[in-house]
Design a protein around this nucleic acid. Structure first.
Length: 1049
RNA sequence: AGUCCUGUAGCUCAGCUGGUUAGAGCGCUACACUGAUAAUGUAGAGGUCCGCAGUUCAAAUCUGCGCAGGACUACCA
């Protein structure tokens, strides 16, 4: 027997995948799929580079599956989809890994180990697991060009990044400025937030805290604080009826009650008060004005603080007590609430500098500003803002053009401007053992404030404070020089461009990403590390002249100048050909530390320039990937091409589609968007799918610690890539978190794969027996059976639905639709009911029609499912057609095949069958026992002809000899009526409920009347109301009065 | 702390722009069928649609406030 359709004994998905993978490798199917479409329009995909420093997890299977699905789908659509792999190779995680491995710390680098050796170690470490990654990628069936990946540490990549930075520099989008960083004065070094998050760094500390009083300057902005009752001012009060309304005319602040109005602000670090330049309030928070006495000077004072913090400073029992009764002993201080207002009303108010040691020269100062980070959990709801010593402070100050004072040096001592305080350490812990003074500067400043009458409350406070993990001493937040990308300058444009990007799900784009853009900060590029791309900026010692290098060619020219000027002796780029550099020439250059730092350039003014010592944020590396993956083209550079990158950059930017985890929103998604907007004023990608997490089956995050991490390789071994992929995609939307449960894979295996496998097996069995030939001329549709046409109709409907789902990045909808079709329509209905046609002896049209129909269904299903199950679908398609599904083109939907009437009719047959079986059950007649006849009342002619068409089908299915149609007039057909809520509700509104009750109460007579007349009057609460026929829904029981009659035939 | 996602049957999930009695699969119970299918069919048990308030004739669906889980970002003056 000629078995042209391979038959299998059992379904072994892991083996199937392994076999197909071998086949792919042998015939280079991936390469063929690209070659086949090499002149086709491209569909551009960017691979976000993983770090090969760690091992892949099951979530990578998820992420890579999603990427693969749409790349394969677009390939099937006839597009050319190049997929270049990439590796993220720089950054802190790698450095920390190496430090741990070598048992060293940052301080050892450059001392016990040379920077050269250290970076060599990093370079070795970073590609350590590439084999594992490549293996996983292959085994899950993700087609990716791993032969020619982009690697971020390679010289051409770094050069491209430099070129981008130079563009930013030329556009004045790169600047050097201050940023607040954790700083250890004892160790003399900045700390990364990563280092700060080491266990044990936060320790409880008892500090002297102070609520300081900032004196408001009376002017137009602050006038309402001085008038009698703030509630009576022009600005609306949050509560119309406040205690301040009681009237206390004799106690106007500024007019007899104390010397003025003070805003209260709390600080746990009084040593920062001399550097105060602003006060921050919450614009939406409520604030109050209170008249009371200063607890230290006992002078009458008017103070302002957040309403919800009043109880922390004022006791209820002293409220509204007589001011005259105050004994001046600091106890039972009377107070009166005198006006309420919102924080935004305070914005713009100026105050007198609290401690006048120095003046800021970099902006405005001593003003109340608004900040959304202000809370009322503790303190006064007013944040003392010293931009030099707090990140929030710095940020909010910058937003409002507020300048800063930095009256502390890098050793943690007050600067010389601080008069009597100069030279004192701001924390006693910084003094060498045994030399700390009795009073810390926090205490001394608090005393000073008390003496000045500017302290409202001084107390000890215990809180957690971060310590340096090296020296065990408290850290400071300190402004350090950093290089920034002025992303805020293009904020509006980024927001605008973002609106053109298709986000899946949309909320990530509008919400998480949109909000992020709305609150954009300048991008701090500086990293004081070793293994990363060095900042290509050379500066003179005085900082007056600087040069940003954009290419190796430029660097070479500058080096030659420097040699001529005598600041350098040797040219490390002497062998580099700036006309047409070769790969070998690139390889010979290392732009990392320490080599690049050995280059000294010469300024136009003739002064030597040293490189700025920082590296850039690794996120800039990956965000540069659209350009840097191709590298610079020296011919284009020479021609001053504004986009001087190697081919195929021109046709591969921007991307049509990218996909990564939702955690990349502010990572890769952002950095790509930012760089693209800033440099080229366009989007980097048109559509982005952000997938959720893969959790364990209990919804917990997988972690090594909990031991609930799923090994991707073991999972693939057990189930095969197809089942894992199908499970992941069909079970939850990509952006929802997936609760990963191996049971779910088993289920998918049993249902979908087994149904499809068996359907094919059935086809192959009989096709081989009969010698069915796919080349046989197709049986015309007119000659095919009702059921053939039905299943082809369903198939074409499915095709359209699935196409639409993939087109809109909804793979879950595609998978579920395919699964439903395969399991329900194809396997459980079509094949089951048509078995006989495949068995029977004669070779007529009917048999060919059956084979052709089933063949077509399987073939199309293979194509539709190929993006999700690349191995299984390819096997299936090859078995059916002898070709690879991945080289085939997407089937065209044939709208003419879609027959909704037929689909409806079949649905009726299915319902009828189900009802008969149900009746059999009720009556205790087994299906095996043939029955003589069943009777079905028909409602109309349409139903009569429908029944005629499905008569044999139903009878066969339920094992009944005869189907008798009952005329509705003969049958005691009862009809049901119910109101059409949508139509009637819109018209009746409130009266809907009563009308519904009335209509539901109709008897058969009234229903008949309504049907006959098309309208009926009824009375509702004494009001007449006309109901139209179309405002109701009249129906009979599903298949009314159906009964099975007759005994055994 | 902010932003976003999720919260429907024991489990995994559908429920479109608000519309009568909230669905499917798995699992469970019973029966039937079993000549492609360790399938399938029928029946049954199983739900405060996370909670509260609001809008509406009508809320699983819209709004607000919470709760729980998760993610990201920034901090704790």
């Amino acid at each position: 027997m000629d078995k042209r359709f391979p038959q299998y004994d059992e379904l072994d998905l892991p083996k199937l995948a392994a076999d197909v993978l071998k086949l792919w490798e042998a015939e280079d199917t991936f390469g063929q799929s690209l070659e086949l479409r090499k002149d086709a329009p491209p569909f551009v995909f960017y691979e976000g580079p993983p770090s090969a420093n760690g091992l892949p997890g099951i979530h990578h299977v998820m992420a890579r599956t999603i990427k693969d699905i749409f790349c394969r789908f677009q390939t099937q659509q006839g597009k050319r989809v190049d997929r270049k792999a990439g590796w993220d190779t720089h950054g802190l995680p790698i450095e920390l890994g190496v430090e741990k491995e070598l048992g060293i710390t940052k301080e050892d680098i450059g001392n016990s180990i040379s920077v050269e050796d250290y970076n060599r170690k990093c370079k070795e470490a970073v590609m350590r697991y590439t084999d594992v990654w490549n293996d996983l990628t292959k085994r899950i069936g993700f087609w990716l060009d791993m032969e020619h990946p982009y690697v971020t540490y390679k010289t051409p990549y770094i050069e491209s990044v430099w070129w981008l930075l130079k563009q930013l520099h030329e556009k004045d989008l790169l600047y050097k400025g201050y940023t607040i960083q954790p700083f250890s004065p004892a160790a003399g070094t900045g700390l990364s937030s990563h280092e700060l998050n080491q266990p044990g760094t936060y320790k409880p500390m008892k500090d002297t805290t102070a609520v300081a009083m900032f004196k408001v300057i009376r002017d137009a902005n602050s006038e309402f604080l001085f008038t009698d009752s703030a509630a009576a001012s022009d600005s609306p009060s949050p509560s119309a009826k406040g205690p301040g309304d009681e009237g206390s005319g004799s106690l106007s602040p500024g007019e007899g009650w104390g010397e003025g109005v003070f805003i209260l602000a709390w600080t746990t670090t009084p040593w920062t008060l001399p550097s105060n330049t602003a006060l921050t309030v919450g614009p939406k928070l409520e604030y109050v004005r209170i008249k009371t006495f200063n607890p230290y000077t006992h002078e009458p004072n008017t103070v302002v603080l957040a309403k919800s913090r009043v109880s922390a400073y004022f006791s209820e029992k002293n409220k509204d007590t007589s001011f005259g009764d105050y004994k001046g002993d600091g106890k039972n201080i009377p107070w009166k609430l005198d006006g309420e207002f919102y924080g935004h009303q305070l914005e713009g108010i100026r105050y007198e500098q609290l401690l006048d040691f120095a003046q800021p020269n970099d902006g405005d100062a001593f003003k109340v500003i608004g900040g959304d980070f202000v809370t009322t959990e503790d303190g006064t709801g007013v944040v003392h803002t010293a931009p030099s010593f707090g990140a929030d402070d710095m940020r909010v100050a910058r937003q409002h053009g507020i300048g800063s004072l930095t009256l502390v040096d890098l050793q943690g001592r007050f600067t010389k401007e601080m008069g009597a305080f100069a030279g004192k350490y701001v924390k006693n812990e910084y003094y060498p053992d045994g030399t700390a003074p009795e009073k810390s500067v926090d205490v001394e400043i608090s005393i000073l404030l008390k003496e000045m009458g500017r302290a409202f409350k001084v107390e000890k406070y215990e809180h957690n404070y971060p310590h340096c993990w090296r020296t065990d001493k408290p850290i400071l937040y300190y402004p350090l020089d950093s290089w920034f990308v002025r992303s805020t300058a293009k904020k509006e444009r980024m927001v605008e461009l973002n609106k053109t990007i298709t986000w899946k799900p949309e909320s990530t784009g509008t919400g998480r990403f949109g909000n992020w853009l709305e609150n954009l900060q300048d991008w701090n590029l500086s990293r004081s590390r070793y293994w990363g791309i060095p900042l290509p900026i050379w500066r003179t010692a005085d900082g007056d002249e600087e040069l940003c290098i954009g290419t190796l060619g430029q660097l070479k020219t500058e080096i030659e100048r420097a040699i001529k000027a005598g600041v350098m002796t040797e040219d490390p780029l002497k062998d580099f050909d700036t006309e047409n550099p070769s790969a070998a020439q690139y390889d010979a250059v290392d732009l990392h530390k320490p080599y690049v730092d050995r280059i000294t350039l010469v300024s136009p003014g003739g002064k030597p320039m040293k490189r700025e010592s920082d590296l850039i944020d690794v996120w800039f590396d990956s965000g540069s990937m659209p350009y840097a993956q191709w590298g610079l083209d020296y011919q284009k550079l020479k021609a001053n091409d504004p986009r001087p990158f190697n081919a195929p950059f021109d046709v591969s930017y921007p991307a049509d589609f990218i996909a990564e985890g939702v955690d990349q929103t502010r990572g890769w998604f952002y950095t790509m968007h930012a760089i693209s907007t800033l440099v080229f004023d366009q989007v980097a990608y048109k559509a982005v799918v952000s997938n959720g997490l893969v959790l364990d089956k209990n919804g917990l995050k997988m972690s090594k610690r909990l031991g609930n991490a799923v090994d991707p390789f073991k999972t693939l071994d057990a189930f095969g890539a197809d089942a894992v992929r199908w499970y992941m995609i069909s079970n939850a939307q990509p952006w929802d978190n997936l609760k990963f449960d191996a049971e779910g894979i088993t289920e998918v295996q049993r249902k979908f794969f087994r149904a499809l496998f068996n359907t094919y097996g059935f086809f192959a069995l009989y096709a081989n027996i009969d010698g069915f030939d796919v080349e046989t001329a197709p049986v015309p549709m007119a000659k095919r059976t009702e059921m053939d046409r039905w299943v082809l109709s369903r198939l074409n409907s499915l095709l359209i639905q699935v196409q639409e789902a993939y087109d809109t990045y909804e793979p879950t909808q595609a998978a579920r639709a395919i699964q439903d079709f395969v399991v329900e329509d194809l396997s459980n209905w079509y094949v089951r009911l048509n078995r006989r046609r495949f068995w029977k002896g004669d070779q007529g049209d009917d048999k060919n029609a059956a084979f052709q129909t089933l063949h077509r269904c399987l073939e199309v299903v293979a194509m539709l499912s190929a993006p999700i199950t690349p191995f299984f679908s390819d096997r299936l398609y090859r078995d059916l057609t002898g070709k690879s599904v991945h080289l085939s083109n997407w089937p065209k939907a044939e709208n003419a095949r879609i027959d909704t009437v037929l689909e409806k009719r079949t649905a009726l047959a299915q319902r009828l069958t189900s009802l008969v079986l149900s009746i059999r059950k009720k009556e205790g007649h087994r299906v095996r026992q043939p029955l003589r006849k069943m009777m079905v009342p028909v409602l109309d002619e349409a139903m009569r002809s429908d029944l005629d068409a499905i008569r044999d089908l139903v009878l066969g299915e339920v094992n009944v000899k005869e189907l008798v149609m009952l005329d509705p007039s003969e049958s005691k057909l009862t009809k049901k009526i119910k109101p059409d809520f949508k139509k009637l509700g819109a018209r009746l509104g409130k009266r809907m409920k009563a009308a519904a009750m009335a209509i539901n109460g109709f008897d058969q007579e009234r229903i008949a009347e309504l049907e006959k007349e098309g309208r009926i009057m009824l009375e509702l609460d004494g009001e007449p109301l006309e109901i139209l026929l179309e405002e109701t829904d009249i129906s009979a029981d599903d298949v009314p009065g159906l009964s099975v009659a007759g005994e055994a035939a």
